[in-house]
Amino acid sequence: MQREEKQLEASLDSVLLKLNEIKSQLVAMLYKIDHERDSLQWPTFLDNFALLSGQFSAISKVLSHDKTPPIRNLTVLPLLLNPEREEELIRLTEGRVPAFTHDLVPDYLRTKPEPDVEHKLLQLEHKAASLSYDAAQKQAATFNKVITHVLDIVSKSREEWESEAGSRGGTGQTSSMSDTHSLVAAVGMGKGLKMMMPQPGAPMGPGMMVAPGGPGRTVAPVMPMGPGGQPMGMMGKTPSGIKTNIKAAAGIHPYR
């Protein structure tokens, strides 16, 4: 708690410092407009503006800093109003506010709403006052009913949504790493595709692939021959029994 107060104090100090800088800048600018109107150059005037905007961005940076507590959440509360002239206050405000009075405070502390807001509020209050007690009661009841209904709808769909999300989280897995690996290895290297053929070559490839061409040529693709003319079989590891199988199978090709 104490730490937060310290933080608030420190940030208020820095904001105050920046505000004072801006104020003196503004005063200097007004002075220039008043007294050096004839000799004032447009570029220097623009430079002044640039300086001001730089200071504004600096102050907004201070305000939006993480360590600055949100000042807008704090309220300024006038504890004592005094219609008499106060020298200390005049000195503090540089002669602008002579007394902390009832007509000045709402403007300075922003407790008074903006004029059009005030106007609207007045209208509404007037309307509310002109309504009979029963009618008002009835309207409030209707309003409550509608609100409850909306609340019901919202909470119901929230429930549905949450249960759906829960069930989805429950089923969880939608992909499997080992399946990914086996699929990639199969497509990439034929893992699991080559080994599964007890009769390699036999019915695959040629009959289906090479439609035209004489029967003698169709057999050609079946023979897994290495460049050296040796049967390569299954990566050269094939037992010789299978080798004979190839030929036998080629002989009884289903498509012939």
């Binding site: 692939m209 061409g213 897994p224």
Partner: peptide
């Protein structure tokens, strides 16, 4: 063309594996 299989075979290629996708 579809004769590519035959062509590759004549070139000395051999079929390693095949699959349906």
């Amino acid at each position: 063309s579809s004769t590519v299989v035959e062509f590759l075979t004549e070139m000395g290629c051999r079929m390693d594996f095949e699959y349906i996708s």
